[in-house]
Each structure stands twice: as structure tokens, then as C-alpha cells.
Amino acid sequence: MIELVRETYRYRELIWALALKELKIRYKRSVLGFLWALLNPAFTMLVLTLVFSTLMRFPIPHYAIFLLSVLLPWTFFSQSLSYAVESIVTNGDLIKKVAVPKVVFPMAAIVSNIINLLLSLIPLALLVPLMRHPFYWTWLYLPVPLLALIIFTLGMTFFFAAANVYYRDVSHILQVVLSAWFYVTPIIYSLDFIPQKHQWIFKLNPIIYVINGFRLAVYYGKLPKAPSIIASFVCAFISLLIGYAIFRKYQDDFVFYV
């Protein structure tokens, strides 16, 4: 684990450059360029707001904010995974020709998606006053669930990126897992909708604690209780420990399979 921190620090410039490269390529040849990182969530928000305030009415006030407060971190999670799962394989040519630490590739995928997530919070921050939803001071708490989310996502990306080197099915399986995971996580609904006696099943979902932190801070203006915060970091570090251990064990063999 210390090794991971050291490598990250040592190769921070490379990770940053690779992340910027990814963003540049993603927005290259588009007239609006980087603006798309803002416009994309903005348009999603517009559609969601229209749909849920006119067509489908949930008994939740300001549903768009209720939804977006966790949809944006979820999007970060699922997009990071979708990008990072291929990161070793797509950089295969490079890995075969230059001695480069393999961790930089999934890391770069995460960093580029962190930038996207932060940018997408700007339109959300604009939407809150626009819908006359209170702007809570608890927004200041967001770096905490953000950190837990990044650590959790990092562990998962290490695992999936490594597994995908050996079996390319993994990237397809991941998509299935992600879409199922989306529905068992209280994103479009609230955990309160679930009967009390079944709630424990939902609480086995490791991402629920971190997601909860985002929603409480942005929508309810509250801070999560200590056990929930602890649970979010425990899940995050378990994910990182397992994911990184597996990645590290196999990283020297990636070059033979890419």
C-alpha cells in the first residue's frame, strides 16, 4: 500500500499527463471542446428535471437534485471503471516497448474522470438555487465522501483492469454488473422506499455508504452519522487492498498477454 502511494507520487506528472491526454482526445475535434464536460451533465440535468417534474412525479420534492446528488458520483464510478478496465489492454503496445509502471494507466483513467466529476458539480451547484432548493453549508463536507469514492473506485479499477488482461470478457461482464448494480443502489429511489425488514440486504452493498454521504450533504443538508462514514472508508480500503494486491501480483505478466 505504501508502495502504491510512493509510485503515485513518483509518477504524478506522468499520471497527470496521461489523464489530460485522455481528456484532450475525448474532446478533440469538437467545436466546444472542454465545455462538453460541463454541457453534458447540464443537458442530462435539464432532461431529468423536465421528465421528473412533469411526466413522472415522485413524492420527493426537487427530485432532480435528489437524483443528481448521487447520480453524478455514480457516473464517475461507472465511467472510471469502463475506461480503466481497458486501460492496460489499450496501452499494450506501449507496455511492450517501454518499461513503465502499469499502475499509471488505471490511475490516469480515474484522474481524468475526477476532473469530469468536479466539472459536473458546477451545473449542479447552479441548478440548486435555480430550483429554489436551499444551498446547504454541508456542501463543504463533500471532499470526504469524494475521497472514499475515489479510493473505492481505484480498488475496483485495479481488479477489473488486471482481470481484463487475461480474459477480455471481463469488460463485457463489467457492463452487466454495473447496470445491475445501478438498480440495487438507491440512486433513482430512496432507501426509505424499501420495507424496514429488507433494508439490511441493501446495506450489504459497499457503495451505498459513500453514496449516502453525497445525498445527505447536497439534498438534505445533513452530515452522515459516524458509523456510516466509517463504513464508507472501510469498504473503500477493503476494495483498494484487494484490488491492488491482485493487480500487483500479476502486473509483471501483463506484457505477455496484451
Partner: peptide, 27 residues
């Protein structure tokens, strides 16, 4: 410095200047 394949770390969409930096960081 490995010269195993020229431009192994180059990315086609990036400019020469950007590639110089990226390649150096990779090394």
C-alpha cells in the same frame, strides 16, 4: 533510454510538443 520502436509512446492526436513531454515522462 530504450529505442526499441521509434515513437512507441507517441499518440497520434497529440501535437509534437505534447508528445515530447509525454514520451519523456514515460521514460
Amino acid at each position: 533510454a530504450p529505442l526499441i520502436e521509434l515513437g512507441a509512446g507517441f499518440h497520434h492526436e497529440l501535437t509534437g510538443r505534447e508528445n515530447i513531454l509525454l514520451n519523456g515522462l514515460l521514460m
